[in-house]
Design a protein around this nucleic acid. Sequence first.
DNA 1: CCTCTATGGCGAA
DNA 2: TCGCCCTAGAGGC
Length: 282
Amino acid sequence: MPEGHTLHRLAHALTATFGGRVVQVGSPQGRFADARLVDGQVLEGAEAWGKQLFIEFPDDRFIHVHLGLIGRFDVHTGVDEVPEPVGQVRLRVSTSSTAAPQAYADLRGATACDLWTRELRDAVIARSGPDPIRPDADPMLAWAKIKRSKAPIGGLLMDQGVLAGVGNVYRAELLFRHRMHPLRPGNTLRIGQWRAMWADLVELMAQGVVTGRIDTVRTEHTPEAMGRPPRVDDHGGEVYVYRRTGQGCHVCGSRIRTAVLQDRNLFWCPQCQRRFRSRTVG
DNA sequence: CCTCTATGGCGAA
DNA sequence: TCGCCCTAGAGGC
């Protein structure tokens, strides 16, 4: 679930569903005791920065949520009745009226769910790199770090202080689309390459916010265009390399490779992404 | 029943 | 680099 597009999508859904309304806030599981401090208040809106989600309440209070690897936050609208929680619900936000239609949102498995002040929120945002989904993002802030780092670009793209919101799928797919080897050092990139990668991220991630999935294949490489079966997977998106180890590359047919970099699975095509080569495809 | 996996990130060693 | 945290679902025995 959770790369930046998921959090922005959630922010939109929470704002649309609960924004400006008095809400009930609770922690059925009990591990978010501070829920009571904003219970019965007006939910002013929700906003995402990278993978961080902030739900704003009066008096500069924010519920800070980070889904981590396995967290999910499901928004249910238009229900007649808010049901009993199922499983480990850390946070539940629900409409406070008793009349239908009602709505509720359940958070499970999150790495973080805390009540924060505006200062804490601002500090985390200040430490984060630019977020390609935010219209005010400045790609040169990321470039300044990339161009002077010897670290592999595959790691830099996942560093939330360099760039906010990119996770393992967008990382792998972006590198493929730009024919770039994941281990290429940041300081060997040229600015034109970075500008092209950023523009691509802006487009891909904006699409992810709309669709709720990560699709990265170009028209000529869709299942329909290639006459291949669609991807069957729990996240569903059409991709070039992510979790396609051993399968044929959609462009050149080579077997997709995998390796572990900084504890995360890395996927690339050994032919399309030869080391120290990089040219944008198409 | 157990083990493994997952689009993440932290802190200790 | 490793262990650990969060949760649910899939698969093996």
